[in-house]
């Protein structure tokens, strides 16, 4: 399956990954190869196989509903580039 360079740019944008324009042909070829491999696997008859949601053959443990965390605001805000009044500050979001 051949991806176009536009597909690669779109995927990069969705993932917020900045890529060097000169490398786009290479990424396009590599990603196309991965999809080709997936297409090859699609030819295996899996009609009798249940879709796998997780590689571990186990089920989710559930937690008792109780508050176990305390206020860690100072520690969490310490890693942020900009804060004010207990808030994380980010570049202005306009709807």
């Amino acid at each position: 399956m051949a991806l176009t360079s536009a597909d690669v740019e779109k995927v990069a944008h969705l993932a917020r990954i900045q890529i060097d324009a000169s490398l786009i042909p290479e990424y396009t070829r590599d990603l196309s190869n991965i999809l080709d491999l997936v297409n090859q696997m699609q030819q295996v008859d899996t009609s009798e196989v249940e879709p796998m949601a997780h590689p571990l053959d186990a089920t989710q443990r559930l937690r008792v509903d109780e508050v176990t965390e305390s206020n860690q605001r100072d520690a969490l805000l310490a890693g942020a580039p900009a804060t004010e009044a207990g808030l994380f500050l980010v570049p202005k979001v306009i709807e």
């Binding site: 937690r63 509903d65 109780e66 508050v67 176990t68 965390e69 206020n71 605001r73 969490l76 805000l77 009044a85 207990g86 808030l87 994380f88």
Partner: peptide, 19 residues
Amino acid sequence: QSKIFSGASTAFGAEANTQ
């Protein structure tokens, strides 16, 4: 009482980022 994936409180109206 607590969040869907963590033990942080869900109480409404707490000071910002304390929960």
